[in-house]
Design a protein around this nucleic acid. Structure first.
Lengths: 200, 200
DNA sequence: GTCTATACGATGATAGAC
DNA sequence: GTCTATCATCGTATAGAC
C-alpha cells in the first residue's frame, strides 16, 4: 500500500536516505512535523518504521536534514541567477525569481517545512540552520544596496526592513499562488519587484 | 505551580473559559498546537486536565475559538481605524497600522495561531473561519482600489496580487519585529506603505 | 465547575534475528 | 539494510464523585 512520492525533490538522491528525505519533505509539509509519525514515513517509502533509525538517529534529525538540503540547493541556484544578471534591476529581479521559484517550484514543500516547522527543531539545530541562512541573506542586502545607490530604490527606505517585508511577501505566496493558475511566475516576480522600486 | 498568563488577550473575558482561551493562545503560539497538551493547558490556568472538557468538547474546539475571537476583535478594530481616516492614503495607512498592530500587539499570539496552526483545524472549522475572514479581506481590496483610482498606486499593478504580497509582508513581521527595538511600529507602517505607493 | 482515576490508542525509539 | 516484536511513555478524552 506504500504510495511513492511522485517526484523526488532536487538535491535528494535516489538512495534510501534520499527517498526518506523526499517523503519527509512531503509529509511534514502536508501534515506537519508532529502529526507525521515515523510509521507514516516508513509506509511512504515502503519500509518498516524501525528501519528508519538505521538512517537517522531521530525524527528530528530527519527534519533538520530536509532543511539543510533545501538551503544548500537554493543558495546555489540563487547565486547562479545572480551571476547571469547584469545591472542592479536585473539582479534584484533574479533574486525575486529565484526565491519565488524556491517556494513555488520543486523545492516548495521543503521550503515550507523550513519556514513553518522551525520550532520543531532543537535549539542546537536552529542555531546550525541560522548559520547556513545568514550568507543567503547577505546576498540580498548587498543587491538591495546596489539598487538603492543606483537610484532604483527611494533613499528614505530602510533596506533591512525592505528585505524583511519582501521575504514575507514572497514566502507568503505559497499560501495562495497556484503554478497552474492565471498568473505566471514571471508576472508575479515583476509585481513583487514593484514593491521595492521607486518608480513603477 | 501554575504560572498564570501575565496579560489576558483582548476579547477574552476573565472567566474560566476566557482564561483557557488566553492560555491556549499563548501555548499554541509558543509550542504549537500539537505539542501543547491538555495537561499543559490545564496547568497554565490552574485546573486539572479533565476539567477542560467541561468548557470545550475537544482540544480542536479551543483552537477554533481562539481564532474566532481574534478575527472578531481585529475586524472591529480595523473598521474603527478606517472610520477615523480620511482620504485613500490615510485609509491605507490605517489598514496597515491596524494589521501590524494585530500581529505585533496584544493579539499577536492569537494572530500567529490563526496563521500558523491553520491545518490543525478540521475542514469544517477551516471553512467557518474562512467565511469570517472574507469580509475583512474585502475591506482591503476596496481601499486599494480607491487608492489606485486616486493615482496613488501605479495602474499596471494587480491589486489582488498586491494585497497578497502585503499580507505576507505584514504578517511576516511577527518573526523579526521587536516592539521594544529601534524601529517604532509607526515607522514600520510607513515603510510598508511604500510597498504599495507609486511615488515614495 | 472541579476533582480523581483511568481507559485505551498511538507514539518514538530499541533489540536482536536475518 | 531491513525485518519483527516490543517497550515505555504520553496523548485525548471519559466517568463519576464531590
Amino acid at each position: 500500500m506504500a504510495s511513492k512520492v511522485k517526484k523526488l525533490a532536487n538535491g535528494m538522491e535516489d538512495t534510501p536516505r534520499g527517498r526518506l528525505l523526499a517523503a519527509a519533505a512531503h509529509l511534514f509539509r502536508t501534515k506537519g512535523f508532529e502529526r507525521t509519525t515515523v510509521r507514516d514515513l516508513a509506509q511512504e517509502v515502503g519500509i518498516q518504521s524501525g528501519s528508519i533509525f538505521h538512517h537517522f538517529k531521530s525524527k528530528e534529525e530527519i527534519l533538520r536534514c530536509v532543511m539543510e538540503e533545501v538551503i544548500h540547493f537554493n543558495t546555489g541556484r540563487m547565486r547562479e541567477g545572480l551571476d547571469k544578471s547584469a545591472g542592479p534591476r536585473d539582479k534584484l529581479l533574479a533574486l525575486i525569481r529565484s526565491e519565488l521559484n524556491s517556494i513555488n517550484g520543486e523545492t516548495g514543500e521543503a521550503m515550507a517545512v523550513l519556514i513553518y516547522e522551525w520550532r520543531c527543531l532543537t535549539p542546537e539545530s536552529q542555531e546550525h540552520i541560522l548559520e547556513l541562512r545568514s550568507h543567503y541573506e547577505q546576498l540580498w542586502l548587498d543587491t538591495l544596496k546596489e539598487a538603492q545607490q543606483a537610484g532604483l530604490i527611494a533613499p528614505q527606505r530602510d533596506l533591512f526592513v525592505l528585505r524583511r517585508l519582501m521575504a514575507g511577501a514572497i514566502s507568503w505566496s505559497h499560501y495562495w499562488y497556484k503554478t497552474d493558475g492565471e498568473i505566471k511566475l514571471d508576472q508575479l516576480a515583476h509585481q513583487a519587484l514593484f514593491l521595492a522600486l521607486h518608480e513603477s
